[in-house]
Structures are given as structure tokens and as C-alpha cells.
């Protein structure tokens, strides 16, 4: 049994995620795997994603990993990153593809430029401020307004306000992190966000999947 499994379904670069996790936890066994059995056996699971969501969904199914992802999201500390967050929703406007449906809501694109307004660059690429909207073990030691690295053209619009864990402005506020039970997911890339990102990853590795720090004897 590994300490942590990074789910590999052939989309994008998982080395950065692995390197950052290994950096904050040199003694942890961190697997990059496309084997459902290894995902099931891991204590913590990271679900990353890059590229286009229709390709990600297709590759996830092609490798028979859908159920392993859903099982992990139902049972153990689970961190979605970028498209790994978007895939947890019901549907994405990118290719109008259905997601895993763990969270109600859609994934929509940043607006195309409107005449006589300042041009909005898409993808939203670079360091932007993240403002947590609820306390969470993964935010411990991270100040409100800390900058994280983003690169994406789509963002989630959750139907359940209770799952919103943080917002960012571009230029309007959008949801950049969601949380429910043992699942936490972020639109930004903690593995590329220097000290703040490494802190979030360390918090994840230390997390038991409960919303409150566990207290012995209670």
C-alpha cells in the first residue's frame, strides 16, 4: 500500500505534481499509476488533469479508471487539480462533455472579448489571488489573498454554494476551489505555486479527510 497515488490516465504532465509532493514528503511512497487496484490501495489520492476535458474523460474511461476515481472520492483524502477539479462536475461547456457528476453544476469558459471592453486574455495564465471562503485543514498556514499559479480557460460554477472553498477574480469572481467531506479540489496548480503551493500539498498529506482536525478522545 502506497501513501499516495497520483492517477495517471495519460493526460498531461504528472511529473511536476509528483516532484512537488515528494519534496514536501521525502519519506512518503508516492506512486504515479493507472492501475485501479493501486488507486484503491493508496491512503491519499491526487487526481490531476491537463489539456481538454473531453480528452481527459475519454482517456479516463479508456483506462477503466472511472470507478476507481469515484471510489477514492467517496472514501479517502482526495485532491483534484485543474481539469481534475473540472471533471468532478456534471458537465463542461468544453466539448459539452459530461463529467463524473460528483458535484452539481457546470464548467464554463471565460467570456470572449466584448467590444469596447478591455480584452480579457484567455487562458487565464499566471499568479492570481486566492481568497478562501471557509476554513479548511488544507488552508492552514495560507493567508487570504495568497497568490497561486493558474492556467485554464474554463472554471466551475457549482450549484451548491456550500462546497465553495475559495474564489479568485478574473476580472469577476469565480470559484477556484471546492470542498466536501474528504474531497478537496483546486483550479490552480499547487505544484507550481512555490511556497504557498507546497504548503497546501503538505496540508493535504497531513489531512485525514475530515473537515475538522481530529481530536484524540472525542
Amino acid at each position: 500500500m502506497s501513501d499516495l497515488a497520483i492517477i495517471d490516465y495519460g493526460m498531461g504532465n504528472l511529473r511536476s505534481v509528483q516532484k512537488a509532493l515528494q519534496h514536501v514528503a521525502p519519506d512518503c511512497q508516492i506512486l504515479v499509476t493507472s492501475d485501479p487496484a493501486e488507486v484503491r490501495a493508496a491512503r491519499h489520492v491526487v487526481f490531476p488533469g491537463q489539456g481538454a476535458m473531453p480528452d481527459c474523460m475519454r482517456e479516463l474511461d479508456a483506462r477503466g479508471l472511472r470507478q476507481a476515481v469515484l471510489d477514492a472520492a467517496a472514501s479517502k483524502p482526495f485532491l483534484g487539480i485543474c481539469i481534475g477539479l473540472q471533471m468532478l462536475f456534471e458537465v463542461s461547456h468544453e466539448g459539452n462533455v459530461p463529467g463524473l457528476g460528483l458535484f452539481r453544476g457546470e464548467v464554463v469558459r471565460f467570456p470572449h472579448p466584448v467590444a469596447d471592453q478591455e480584452r480579457l486574455k484567455v487562458p487565464h495564465m499566471g499568479w492570481n489571488e486566492v481568497n478562501p471562503t471557509q476554513p479548511h485543514p488544507l488552508w492552514v498556514g495560507i493567508s487570504a489573498g495568497e497568490r497561486f499559479y493558474f492556467v485554464h480557460s474554463y472554471y466551475p460554477v457549482p450549484l451548491e454554494p456550500g462546497i465553495v472553498a475559495a474564489r479568485t477574480r478574473y476580472p469577476e469572481p469565480f470559484v477556484c476551489a471546492v470542498a466536501r467531506d474528504n474531497v478537496f479540489a483546486v483550479q490552480f496548480h499547487p505544484e507550481k505555486s512555490q511556497a504557498a503551493g507546497l504548503r497546501l500539498l503538505a496540508n493535504f498529506l497531513a489531512w485525514d479527510g475530515l473537515l475538522q482536525p481530529s481530536r484524540p478522545g472525542t
Partner: peptide, 8 residues
């Protein structure tokens, strides 16, 4: 405040 201009 929003997206920062990057220095590379």
C-alpha cells in the same frame, strides 16, 4: 487586485 503581470 487580480492577475499579476509576470517577470521571467
Amino acid at each position: 487586485m487580480g492577475l499579476a503581470k509576470r517577470v521571467i
